[in-house]
Amino acid sequence: MIEAVGLTKHYGKTVAVDNLSFTVRPGQVTGFLGPNGAGKSTTMRMILGLDNPTGGQVLIDGKRYRQLHRPLRTVGALLDAKWVHPNRSARSHLRWMARSNGIADRRVDEVLELVGLTAVAKRNAGGFSLGMSQRLGIAAALLGDPSVLLFDEPVNGLDPEGILWIRNFMHRLAAEGRTVLVSSHLLSEMAQTAQELVVIGRGKLISQSSTAEFIEQASENTVRVRSPQVDLLRAALLGDGATVTDDGVDGALVVHGMEPAAIGELAAARGVTLHELSPQRGSLEEAFMQLTKESVEYHAHGDEVPVQDLPV
């Protein structure tokens, strides 16, 4: 269980995290979602006691990170897979971490086996591919068999196989009753990984809800209808207060602001035959953009460039 209360971090005049409060519960994967620069990594560093909050606090199982005895046994984290000495072997890297928290060397070999790095354990970590480094980072996070796990953008730059492996791994960790917090800037990735979402933008909390709820509330739901009596249907819908636009492909209508059931009932009451009645779910990325467009730190203005007239 992670509880952030009024967490705030200023770097000079820049406000990286602004009065952020959220709760991460055990037994499920919680996605920590926000555009780049939203303050996700800063928040994770504050959870781990690496950065000192300007205000507020974050508690892990009721304690500040610095109060934890042998913290690797409570919290495992992978913030950056490249945080290893390139000329130190994978095994030595894990060995010093294990030793510092009274973890037996046997456990080092166990986690190496778990992430599939046993064969390269004696090789220098500097020569690892991104996927291997990521696995080493996960091995380090699992060393102390912790009940809380933090992963910062764990699938960034991985190939599909690596992404799938990490995703399944997180599900397994959560199913074991652990608290798992995973950050990402991709909602589509989170939708497949997380059951709960904490969404932030510009350091502020935008929402905390289940992933399904978030998508539900964020995306605009529309209904696509086709009918041989298009004009009759359109008039009936407009008369009932719905907004109707033409789909343009095959004479279908797109209805905003009315549930499929209501449309069906309306059509039946007016004796209109329906050939299609299909709810359209807005895409995840649309939903995400919708909610965070106010809070993206770095905008690209490419699409605002005026089209220049060609000389005649």
Binding site: R45, L48, G49, L50, Y65, R66, L68, P71, L72, V75, A77, L79, D80, K82, W83, V84, H85, P86, H93, M97, S100, N101, A140
Partner: peptide, 22 residues
């Protein structure tokens, strides 16, 4: 300085949050 260069200082302080000790 290599601990800072390669980020292992973060792992160090993560493992032992009482920074004076390490």
């Amino acid at each position: 300085t290599t601990e800072y260069r390669f980020g292992t200082i973060k792992s160090t302080f993560q493992a032992v949050p009482n920074r004076t000790a390490p």
